[in-house]
Amino acid sequence: MMIEFDGDVFRWAARADSSWFFTSVPPELSDDIREIPRPYRGFGSVRVRARIGGSEWTTSIFPSSDGTYVLPLKKSVREAESLVDGGPVTVRLDVLDA
């Protein structure tokens, strides 16, 4: 399953000094991902191949408290794609756990 979406970059708010940044998968796409039959993985994570601009990497998305999945954005990707806290991002995800 491949999905594309636009989102916003945000810093993990649980700690003010956090260096973790994410973007949220929209609710309707999160629902679609949740319905894919797959074995349970730790924390409810789902393995994906992510692409932003010219950067591509394999990671996992994680369920958040609002029912959506969140995609962690590595520092190397943020720097390569000039992503900033609060800024826009266009993401392509290939769900690998399907």
Rank of each mutant, 00 (worst) to 15 (best):
V46L: 07
K74L: 09
F10N: 03
V77S: 11
V95Y: 07
P63N: 10
G7D: 05
P88S: 13
S24I: 00
I52V: 15
T58K: 15
E35H: 10
K74Y: 00
T90P: 02
R34S: 13
S18T: 06
L73E: 13
P37Y: 04
E28C: 04
D97E: 15
A80E: 14
G42Q: 14
V84I: 15
L93R: 11
T68L: 03
E4S: 15
F21D: 03
R15I: 00
G67W: 07
D66L: 03
V46G: 04
D94T: 12
P27T: 00
F22W: 13
S76W: 15
D66W: 01
G54D: 15
D31R: 12
E35T: 08
T68P: 00
S24L: 01
S30I: 00
P39L: 01
S30N: 05
R15K: 15
R49D: 00
E35M: 06
P27K: 01
G44P: 07
G87V: 08
K74S: 08
F21Y: 15
P27F: 04
R11Q: 14
D66F: 03
P37V: 03
V77M: 13
T90F: 03
D6Y: 03
D97I: 03
R15N: 13
V70S: 12
P37H: 03
F62Y: 15
D17K: 08
P39Y: 00
G42W: 05
M1T: 13
V48N: 09
E79D: 15
A14S: 11
I61C: 04
W20C: 10
P72T: 11
M2H: 08
G87N: 12
P26L: 02
W20Y: 14
R41H: 10
D97N: 12
R11V: 05
G53N: 09
T59Q: 10
G87D: 14
D31I: 03
F43A: 14
W20L: 14
P37Q: 05
P72D: 09
R11Y: 05
G67L: 08
R38P: 01
F62R: 04
S82Q: 14
P72A: 09
T23R: 06
R92P: 02
E4W: 02
W57A: 05
E28Q: 09
I3S: 06
G54I: 05
S76C: 12
F21M: 08
T90S: 13
E81R: 12
T59P: 10
V84P: 01
P26Q: 00
D31K: 10
G42C: 02
V9L: 05
G87M: 08
A80P: 09
E79I: 14
R92M: 13
G67H: 06
P63S: 07
W57M: 08
P72S: 09
I36V: 12
G53K: 11
